[in-house]
Amino acid sequence: MSTPLSVIADLVPHGSRVLDLGCGDGRMLAHLRDTRGCTGLGVEIDPQKLIAAAARGVDVLQYDLEQGLSLFGDRSFDVVLQIDTLPNIRHTENALRETARVGRLGILSFANFAHWSIRLQILTGRLPVTPELPYEWYNTPNLRVATYADFERLAAHCGLRLVDAFGVRNGRRINFAPGLLATEAVFCVQGA
């Protein structure tokens, strides 16, 4: 289970122009359009997901994020989303910098690899399998994993301002010890 749509959607101002990187089947953009009057554009490399998004009436560009975001101008979107996209990108740092360049606000979420249950599983000598990371080490599509604390450091390294940061557990926001207790991490960042 990843972070519920509504938890992310609550962070997106009404009427925003939204770019959703790795938008999948366009669910989030359709939700933002229908509930918050947002306009938007998705980026997705998988053709089947592109078709599903088109069927929802969501505009999507079939585009490989590894090529960067040079298609998009500086601050050309109010919000740029990266929902569970970060672990699948090779050039993580560049993607983060580009997100902050293109969007006035960047919202990123990903599975927190420092959740206590993962820490316990690692203590047994095995890589963890959890509802958020349901793969074995040998068949995971994720290029990398990250923790809440890791991302804070990367954001600081990139000179980004954390507008908001919190964890998610059981589909709900938690602010206490998210690095340990949250299964998902959510960050709202802004460029300098």
């Binding site: 122009r17 306009t39 554009l41 088109a54 505009d59 999507v60 560009l61 079939q62 585009y63 298609l71």
Partner: peptide, 21 residues
């Protein structure tokens, strides 16, 4: 095609783009 897509996006027009293999 991407040139057209980029121009439309910078004009804030609605555009879907498929690059078919």
């Amino acid at each position: 095609s991407r040139e057209i897509v980029q121009a439309l996006i910078s004009n804030r027009r609605a555009v879907t783009y498929a690059e078919v293999d």
